[in-house]
Design a binder for these strands. Structure first.
Ligand code: FES
Ligand code: FES
Lengths: 159, 159
DNA sequence: TGTAAATCGGATAATATCATCCAATATAAT
DNA sequence: ATTATATTGGATGATATTATCCGATTTACA
């Protein structure tokens, strides 16, 4: 009859990645998709394709460009692209690292200063196992690979 | 000679769990540790044991108490404890769910409205694999189990 | 050379998360 | 009964993250 509502003091929401990283990954996949066809893409087009706020996406793309993960061009006909040669070299770990830093590699699951095998938190070994798999996945998954899913409408960057 | 400094616009920091969840898990492990010995623990003692801000920890413990994960007692000799009977029944998933909600069960890794196999994001299958393992780990790991690590100084809740 | 279209970069605003403060309530012990 | 000690709950403050705005710069093209 009546549902139970959980009225929480906190509105915290679990998120594996930060918004910035999410946009960064989505954008990179879209750019990879177009770059494969030799097409360049403007900020506005990227934001539309991945359904993200334009100005914020600009900041994220700037970070990726500074890190050399994508290449930016100013002026008319400008925009962003990923050079064909490096298309297979861009992995998710590069993007996350450029945006969120490398705390993913040394962070403790329970929030201790840093993950330390010598003085581990109680969750260390269980957590490390998962974190290592996540790390491995990010390091071995290329944007090119993920862009393939877009080609035949098998995957989507927005809904 | 000189290091390269990454001066980022963002200061985002990768974190698997929210601070609230981190404190919640740490606190629950400490309470489990003491409850096994039949001891009750005050807010102040909890905060000291897990090196967390007192007032904020109070809010987190309140949430856990409301959800019946821990039991609170007011007045002198008051504090928090986990009934011995339920000690083996409290899993990390209960704590995370009480604090961060269940977006961990249905969230999309790339930030789409929700994870949806029918219209998946390009990272869906890789992400789902990891998320399912994390979920499984949280659902099968009890605070009692983790408290054991504390007993012989094999694990630590602060440094 | 001028103009329009694009990114860049700095400042600022909005929101969410993290954290603190304090009065109210409950209760054990004197 | 009174007092001291503890959690509760509401309001508020601080910080981090997300988001926007706008002038400056770059550059293709007429
Ligand atoms: S010490 Fe906590 S995850 Fe390694
Ligand atoms: S749709 Fe993105 S993780 Fe399932």
């Amino acid at each position: 009859m009546s549902d139970i509502f959980f009225i929480s003091i906190f509105d915290t929401n679990y998120n594996m990645f930060s918004k910035a990283s999410e946009y960064g990954i989505r954008a990179a996949i879209h750019l990879a998709h177009l770059s494969k066809k030799g097409e360049r893409c403007s900020l506005r087009q990227v934001a539309k394709a991945i359904d993200s706020p334009v100005a914020f996406t600009a900041k994220v793309l700037q970070l990726l460009a500074r890190d050399g993960i994508i290449v930016s061009f100013q002026g008319p006909t400008g925009g962003y692209e990923i050079p064909k040669e490096s298309l297979s070299l861009v992995h998710l770990s590069d993007i996350v690292k450029a945006i969120d830093g490398d705390s993913i590699y040394n962070g403790c699951g329970l929030g201790l200063e840093s993950c330390n095998e010598k003085k581990p938190c109680p969750l260390h070994f269980q957590f490390k196992s998962i974190r290592d798999e996540l790390k491995e996945m990010l390091q071995t998954t290329s944007v090119q690979e993920l862009a393939k899913g877009l080609e035949y409408g098998m995957a989507f960057l927005k809904r």
